[in-house]
Computed example of a mutant assay.
Amino acid sequence: MSPAAGSRPGIIIGGVWLAAALLLQLTAVLVLTSRPTWRPIGLLAALLSIAVLVPSASIALAGLVVDAAALIAVAVAVAAAHRTPTPPSAGGTR
């Protein structure tokens, strides 16, 4: 059940969801600029959004699907990063 619009809980939930939306946009910019920092930011954004949307899941299915896609993308990227061998250091060994 969603809090009433304009109520204190409604304003708090709206603020949290706004923060999640801004973090999702930041995640998109970081992905487009090939910055690896998108993973933790995307994870945080999806988790915040899920926390806000779950109480209204019956009317927020599309948002939950987007959040699930973001979580899957983060999981795949983290798994790929752990599989990729690290290149040798530029300075060599001593």
Rank of each mutant, 00 (worst) to 15 (best):
P85K: 07
A81Q: 13
A20P: 04
P3E: 00
V76L: 12
V54S: 10
A46F: 02
S56P: 03
V78L: 11
G63V: 10
L24V: 05
T86K: 14
A46S: 05
V54Q: 13
T84K: 15
T93R: 12
W38T: 03
I12L: 15
P36F: 02
V16E: 11
A80P: 09
L48S: 02
L47P: 01
W17P: 00
P55A: 06
I59C: 02
Q25L: 09
L48W: 02
L43A: 05
I13P: 00
L30R: 12
G14M: 06
R83L: 14
V16W: 00
T37M: 12
A45S: 04
V54E: 15
L32S: 08
M1N: 03
A70P: 03
Q25V: 07
A70Y: 04
L61M: 14
D67I: 08
A5P: 00
L22I: 08
A57N: 07
V29R: 11
V65S: 14
P40Q: 00
A51S: 15
L61R: 15
G92V: 13
Q25I: 07
W38L: 00
L64Y: 05
G6I: 06
V54G: 11
R94D: 15
A69W: 10
A68C: 11
A81D: 15
S49W: 06
S7A: 09
T33P: 06
A51W: 04
A60V: 01
L23G: 04
L43E: 09
A77M: 07
T93N: 13
L23R: 07
S34K: 09
V52G: 12
A70E: 06
A20T: 05
I13C: 05
P9L: 03
R83M: 13
W17C: 07
